[in-house]
């Protein structure tokens, strides 16, 4: 994972060459050689937070260090695999993202960063992708970068700052503290919130299926 050269799906699910049940987000990015689209970003966020939430308190939360850890499964589920080295103590050189044990908000922060990087994949350092405001807000809040720009951070949380119509009300984002908060925001992105589980699962299922199709095609060409 994270190496150079042509994409070789097979490592992530331990089924090299055979039928695959999961692809890592990194494999998907490398196969397409382009970033994920916005709908896929919403879907991966929703599905990943769903599986983290389902895993519950029984599992020690871990930061997401790379897209290689995010697994998109054939059935549209998205799970988080431990990073290499996560089994033991974090290495002294692990840095800010390297601590294994952390809070739920820290996992969300790291997930937001990795999702942004997947949206930014392949872009040059001096280029920036124009994201839709709702997705940018989601990532801003997940990654906890809202305060960093020195702008009016309070606007999202304050209910009395001129948010008038329903759309504004819907977009109003309070601080994200849990996987459930992220899922609620992702659901609010849809016209019918109750469709979120089926919709986002279908988006991830399609992402897996289309990537596998591309992989098969590229393998034949090879």
């Amino acid at each position: 994972a994270g190496g150079e050269g042509p994409p070789e799906p097979g490592e992530a699910a331990g089924a090299a060459g055979g039928s695959r049940d999961a692809l890592s987000l990194e494999e998907i990015l490398r196969l397409y050689n382009q970033p994920i689209n916005e709908e896929q970003a919403w879907a991966v966020c929703y599905q990943c937070c769903g599986s983290l939430r389902a895993a519950g308190a029984g599992r020690q939360p871990r930061r997401v260090r790379s897209a290689a850890q995010i697994r998109v499964w054939r059935d549209g589920q998205v799970t988080l695999a431990p990073a290499a080295g996560d089994a033991g103590e974090p290495p002294a050189s692990a840095g800010k993202l390297g601590y294994s044990h952390c809070t739920e908000t820290e996992v969300i922060e790291s997930l937001g960063i990795i999702i942004y990087k997947a949206l930014d994949y392949g872009l040059k350092e001096n280029e920036e992708r124009e994201l839709s405001p709702p997705l940018e807000q989601l990532i801003d809040h997940m990654a906890n970068t809202v305060e960093a720009d020195g702008s009016n951070d309070e606007g999202y949380e304050a209910a009395d700052e001129g948010l008038e119509d329903e759309e504004d009300e819907k977009r109003k984002i309070s601080a994200i503290r849990s996987y459930r908060d992220v899922m609620k925001l992702c659901a609010a992105h849809l016209s019918t919130e109750s469709e979120a589980p089926n919709h986002y699962q279908a988006v991830c299922r399609a992402l897996f299926a289309e990537t596998m199709e591309l992989h098969t095609f590229l393998s034949k060409i090879k």
Partner: peptide, 24 residues
């Protein structure tokens, strides 16, 4: 279908890319 369509703008110091970069 399946193709990402997005606009690219110059990176801005106060943009989300810069803020994310500061985090990593």
């Amino acid at each position: 279908k399946g193709k990402s369509l997005y606009k690219i703008k110059p990176r801005h110091d106060s943009g989300i890319k810069a803020k994310i970069s500061m985090k990593t």
